[in-house]
Design a protein around this nucleic acid. Structure first.
Lengths: 318, 318
DNA sequence: AGAGAAATTGCAACCGGTTGCAAAAAAATT
DNA sequence: AATTTTTTTGCAACCGGTTGCAATTTCTCT
């Protein structure tokens, strides 16, 4: 019963006879021995650690994201090493950090950062997936997410279909790529369909309060019939601002959100919103990152999932 | 310039001359070298990894928790290794797992698990803090949190003060220790103050829908004047159930929640609720766990923080 | 300049596993 | 029973750092 015998009983696929395996296992049980993953990592150059980088910890939309990522990674024997980007200024620092921890891969889960952030992990030789990332044809990074431009288009189309003419765009933070794409799609389609976009403004961040504040500006321009918001939370703030200004929803003003968070279904809002298939996106991301770990040379892939409109009661019926 | 010279330049407090340090640093820069934390961990028996164990990923109350824990740990040079308990059945498994990863410490952040869960890490020789844990005088584990029994008392006292007579308790999941304590405190104090607790029921889980469903049962008993809920999310579901039944808040029925999540301040709910000082609790937990890493023999401490009532508009005024 | 003290450096063992390779044991074949 | 083939086993080097200790260098002081 040498050291290698022990190692082999705890490595599946290794060559050990039933007898020695049994002996080792019995000894391990009485001693309470479990192999050290740290030592194994050093020898195998695999840590089974996946960096999970996010920057939007305050948005309920991320509850699902954390829940799904952690449980899916766990199922496959990987552990998520959480990185909170929101406090930090220098993203480069985290590339180094995750490299030092020798994570097997990284999932960048944010819709606000440019593709270049994910690329910098790639440059450091770490497999990376940009989940909720921006689709860029030339980007040499795995991206799993949605077509935000098209989502903007969907919103404008629905507005047109419902007979709205004078509408507004109340986006998320202007620097976010998702905001830019959704705005671009919305504005283009609105124009094509002859809608008048009478106000365009952006919330400071993804919060109820920011949505509420931004809505004040939109309200300056009278006669807005419907507002497309870049995020449900922002939208709910905007709805309450409209109500506080005496407008009734959906009779006098319509709202459309984005994300379909749990609260969107609450009676008080009953928000019509665009839903992205979070579960599919995350399963796909996890699958992809695990695949990358096994075969790092896989060529960069873009996986876009279709979004659906969840009809509730914040737009006037046909 | 030996291997040790390199090691020493990257270890603070080690003895290196300015000249060699400089030489090493230059070489490191051109080579893009950073010391491997894995190898360091193996040698020092310290990983700078803290297991963050939670089981309530769907509740917005946890957004703050994740945000604060990750950023505070980051600040101190530790990384959170996230463990999602909600999917799993066997807690023992995670003790083993975190032991295999040689985490320096564990934070169990849940108000629902019994103290024994945290203790099992301790038994395995891993420093552990039970944040939001139950206060038990004899428990030999660090606990940072609040006095749930007293919080229940506060709620009953406020009800009495407002002149409510016939009240109800709508707790969180019955198996949660926090539910039990809050209920105990509430029922005891209600009795002392001569309130009639006409209905006592528990939501299946910490969701809006569960609160809504549970409220149906409470409504069976007519004439309830106020309801104390074990969680804001549950409370909001309950409020909407009451409204759907035609009751107006706070005129016909009052509500009181727990946690003060962001949504509690929204116009549509304006919920009077009990707030726990999350930030203080988490800062204290992080401090404590870091302290334990440095001095593992520190004796078990219980740190309880006072909660405050956040008055909004869901109870009738005096 | 020389002696003594203090600071710096390199050696080598160690942390706890994995793994290629050759030797040993077991199984299969003649 | 002897030979060949297959399976199992242990040896020893390696993963990439840390660290006690002794040797060396540098600094102080007379």
């Amino acid at each position: 019963m040498s050291r290698s015998a022990v190692s082999r009983t705890f490595t599946d696929g290794a060559s050990v006879s039933a007898r020695t395996r049994e002996k080792v296992e019995k000894a391990a049980k009485t001693l309470g021995y479990k192999p050290s993953l740290i030592a194994r990592s050093l020898a195998t150059n695999r840590t089974k650690l996946i960096g999970l980088v996010a920057n939007n910890f305050q948005n309920p939309a991320f509850l699902d994201v954390f829940d799904l990522f952690t449980s899916e990674l766990q199922k496959r024997g990987f552990r998520p090493l959480l990185v909170n980007l929101s406090a930090e200024t220098s993203p480069k620092k985290f590339v180094e950090l995750l490299r030092q921890y020798s994570v097997d891969g990284v999932i960048v889960a944010t819709s606000t950062l440019p593709t270049s952030f994910a690329t910098s992990f790639q440059a450091a030789g770490i497999p990376v997936i940009h989940t909720f990332g921006k689709y860029e044809a030339n980007a040499n990074v795995h991206v799993v997410g949605i077509d935000n431009v098209y989502c903007g288009t969907m919103a404008a189309a629905l507005f047109a279909e419902r007979g709205y003419r004078k509408v507004a765009l109340l986006g998320g933070p202007e620097a976010a790529t998702s905001t830019q794409d959704r705005a671009a799609g919305f504005l283009k389609a609105a124009n094509d369909k002859g809608l008048e976009v009478a106000a365009t403004c952006f919330a400071e961040n993804y919060t109820y309060q920011a949505g509420r504040d931004a809505m004040q500006q939109v309200l300056q321009e009278g006669g807005i019939e419907a507002v497309f918001c870049g995020d449900d939370l922002i939208c709910m703030g905007a709805m309450d601002a409209a109500r506080a200004a005496g407008l009734s929803i959906p009779e006098e003003i319509g709202f459309m959100g984005f994300n379909d968070i749990a609260m969107a279904g609450w009676d008080a809002y009953s928000l019509t919103t665009i839903r992205q298939p979070i579960r599919d996106i995350i399963l796909s991301s996890v699958e992809l990152v695990v695949g990358m770990v096994e075969n790092p040379t896989r060529s960069a892939e873009i996986r876009l999932f279709p979004c659906t409109i969840v009809e509730r009661g914040s737009l006037k019926p046909v």
